[in-house]
Simulated scan of single mutants.
Amino acid sequence: MNKIPLNDEIAVAMSQIVDDALVATRKPSHADLDNIILRHGLDKGDPKLNGLNGNVGKAKRVYAVLNWALEYNQELGESFVGSLISLLRGHGGFRDSSPNYVGNESILNLQNSLKLEGIVLASDGTLTPMVLENLSDLEMEEALESYIRRAKKGASDAALLTGTSKDLLEAVAAHVITKLLGKYQQSNFPTLLGLAFHLLGLSTPNTKGVNESMSRMEISLYELGCAVNNLRNKQGTGHGRPFLPTVTPNEAIAAIESMGLISEFLLNKLKEKVS
């Protein structure tokens, strides 16, 4: 995974995982950090590369860089997190017999932080999207909510790669149907999404919902969801560009954010219905 979700909690966990204040020395070195910080264009956030050479430890550097990224360029920060985890793994940071082992507590903290964003960090440092089919109802909704948060920011990796062959909106529709009917049968996307809308009492072009004043908006959301699905590169989902080559980057961001908006709407409606 080239990009890893970044938030305040993950920034703290990533700074802890490089903290070597209590040991004589441990890789990655400051020079290693210099290289990946510069490679990702995050040097403006690094106190060491900005002349503060005093007592700037690795943890303080990483925390400062990630906080700068959260404010000014989250996408660069997400790429940096992925590279830093790869760097730690390459130095044996996740192997308890290695002199560069980062410690069980630091790994557990990072695992828990990433899990809330739909990412599984294995004990050997490998990263995979959370497989939704293996989760309980509560875990499923928490994972979907994490993908929705990222989709609403235009993060294509989270919006399309939910650890399954489904995109985010398809996964949410399937969850709605399973929750309300006990199971769902695989079908084409418009039928799947239409059934989810119908079960939630929402209008589609073929069904009338319970709230007439919301009907036009609900139909628009349904049609928008189908339109976004039509833009998917279905052979490439999970293995490269998630949208057709004719879709520009700006159009892709709009499509992803739309996917997040519709997914959030459906998930909130489901919570209302079952509460």
Rank of each mutant, 00 (worst) to 15 (best):
Y184W: 15
N188K: 14
E141C: 07
T162E: 06
N100R: 04
Y147G: 07
S97T: 14
S213I: 11
K115A: 11
G154P: 03
A159H: 01
I177L: 13
L121I: 08
P190C: 09
K152P: 01
L199R: 07
D157G: 06
A174L: 09
V131S: 12
G154I: 02
R150D: 03
G194A: 02
G103I: 08
Q185F: 13
G209T: 08
E139V: 07
L169F: 00
N112F: 10
S98V: 05
R150G: 04
G194E: 01
V102Y: 06
E133Y: 14
L121Y: 09
L199G: 10
V102D: 04
K153P: 07
L169T: 08
K115R: 14
A158W: 15
R150L: 15
A122P: 12
L181I: 10
G163Q: 05
I177C: 07
G154M: 09
T164N: 10
Y101M: 02
L132N: 03
L202H: 00
M214D: 12
M130W: 12
L121M: 01
G154Q: 02
G118L: 05
E139R: 05
T178P: 06
Q186E: 15
H175I: 09
L127I: 11
A158S: 14
L180P: 00
A155C: 14
S113P: 09
L108D: 11
G182I: 04
K179T: 09
D96A: 09
L108N: 12
Q186M: 12
A158R: 14
P99F: 07
K153G: 05
A155N: 08
V172Q: 00
L108R: 14
L181V: 08
L202R: 02
Q186D: 15
Y147Q: 11
L169Q: 06
I148K: 00
L181E: 14
M214N: 15
S213T: 05
L169W: 07
T162C: 11
T191S: 13
G194C: 06
S187K: 11
E139C: 13
G154N: 03
K208A: 09
S136G: 14
V172A: 03
T164C: 02
T204L: 15
E145V: 04
N112H: 11
L161F: 13
L121H: 03
G118Q: 00
S165H: 12
N188A: 15
K208Q: 12
A159C: 10
E145P: 08
G182Y: 01
E212I: 06
E141D: 11
N188W: 01
G154E: 02
I107Q: 08
S203M: 12
S123W: 05
D124W: 00
G125V: 08
G209Q: 06
V131R: 11
A151M: 07
T128S: 10
K153A: 08
H198L: 12
P205T: 11
K183F: 06
H175N: 04
T164W: 00
E212N: 15
S136I: 09
D124P: 01
V172M: 02
V172C: 01
L200W: 00
A158V: 04
S106N: 15
S165D: 14
L181H: 13
L135N: 01
D96Y: 08
E105G: 11
K183G: 07
G118R: 08
N112E: 15
L138Q: 13
P190S: 08
S97G: 04
L127M: 09
L200Q: 01
R149T: 05
E212W: 10
A159Y: 00
K153H: 03
A159S: 04
P129T: 02
V120G: 03
L108T: 11
